[in-house]
Computed example of a mutant assay.
Amino acid sequence: MDAIVKTFPGKDGEARPTQAEAEEAVRTLLRWAGDDVTREGLIDTPKRVAKAYKELFAGYEQDAEEELGRTFEEVAGYDDIVLVKDIPFFSHCEHHMVPIIGKAHVAYLPDGKVLGLSKIARVVEIFGRRLQTQETMTAQVAHSIDDTLHPRGVAVMIEAEHMCMAMRGIKKQGSTTITTTFTGAFKTEPHEQVRFMTLVRGRD
């Protein structure tokens, strides 16, 4: 399901631009915005932006299913809910390329195997460090765990503020978007959804 993107994701499989091309693109945007790319404060900005983008979008170089590959079966028969909540993340809106800042709550019902807890946070990080919509990211986190671990069910809730709403357009700061994805027992058994929501909201 989840592939590592090694080339520029164009329809024709075009090779990824070089570092120099990326830096020139930043200079073009700076000139378009109306600034002087030769002034002292901006001389190294294209290099810094390209370096920052490599970090901010590192998720394209990582495979969530590979990260989830190691599981543990010595769980003393434990088969109840496993929940990791309040996982902070930063992403970028694929429509305006401005930040999405939020937290994820991820739970699953084991079926003989469990994940290392840090793996769940790592999967959120991988999908967060790509251009995203919140709806897509929520589904990606849920389905990557479902497809790899094959648990009895997965539940994911993401709460986030979108800077494309806060900084531009309607300019409404502080509004939060909530999305959920449920699979397996969390989808078919209402009481499991209720348990998940109660545990997540239990912090309030």
Results as ranks from 00 to 15, higher is better:
residue 31 R to L: 07
residue 163 M to F: 08
residue 117 L to W: 09
residue 77 G to W: 13
residue 84 V to C: 03
residue 113 K to D: 07
residue 81 I to L: 15
residue 49 V to G: 11
residue 69 G to I: 02
residue 167 M to P: 01
residue 149 L to W: 06
residue 77 G to R: 14
residue 100 I to L: 15
residue 73 E to M: 06
residue 6 K to I: 11
residue 92 H to K: 02
residue 132 Q to C: 02
residue 103 K to V: 13
residue 108 Y to D: 04
residue 91 S to I: 11
residue 116 G to Q: 08
residue 65 E to L: 05
residue 89 F to I: 11
residue 192 E to K: 13
residue 83 L to S: 09
residue 67 E to K: 14
residue 81 I to K: 00
residue 131 L to T: 08
residue 72 F to I: 13
residue 79 D to Y: 01
residue 202 G to C: 04
residue 149 L to E: 00
residue 150 H to R: 14
residue 150 H to S: 11
residue 126 I to S: 09
residue 143 H to D: 14
residue 98 V to W: 06
residue 144 S to H: 07
residue 100 I to K: 01
residue 25 A to D: 02
residue 153 G to F: 04
residue 62 Q to G: 02
residue 147 D to V: 00
residue 175 S to L: 01
residue 123 V to P: 03
residue 118 S to P: 07
residue 172 K to Y: 03
residue 10 G to V: 07
residue 98 V to N: 03
residue 191 H to L: 07
residue 15 A to E: 15
residue 93 C to P: 01
residue 49 V to T: 09
residue 143 H to G: 02
residue 195 R to S: 12
residue 130 R to W: 12
residue 26 V to S: 08
residue 142 A to V: 05
residue 202 G to V: 04
residue 170 I to M: 03
residue 45 T to I: 10
residue 59 G to W: 01
residue 123 V to W: 10
residue 127 F to W: 15
residue 56 L to Y: 14
residue 161 E to F: 06
residue 5 V to G: 00
residue 152 R to I: 01
residue 147 D to C: 00
residue 141 V to L: 04
residue 40 E to G: 08
residue 12 D to H: 13
residue 184 G to Y: 03
residue 124 V to E: 13
residue 103 K to L: 02
residue 48 R to Y: 06
residue 63 D to K: 03
residue 21 E to N: 05
residue 106 V to L: 07
residue 14 E to R: 15
residue 89 F to C: 12
residue 8 F to H: 13
residue 37 V to Q: 00
residue 87 I to E: 01
residue 62 Q to H: 11
residue 170 I to W: 03
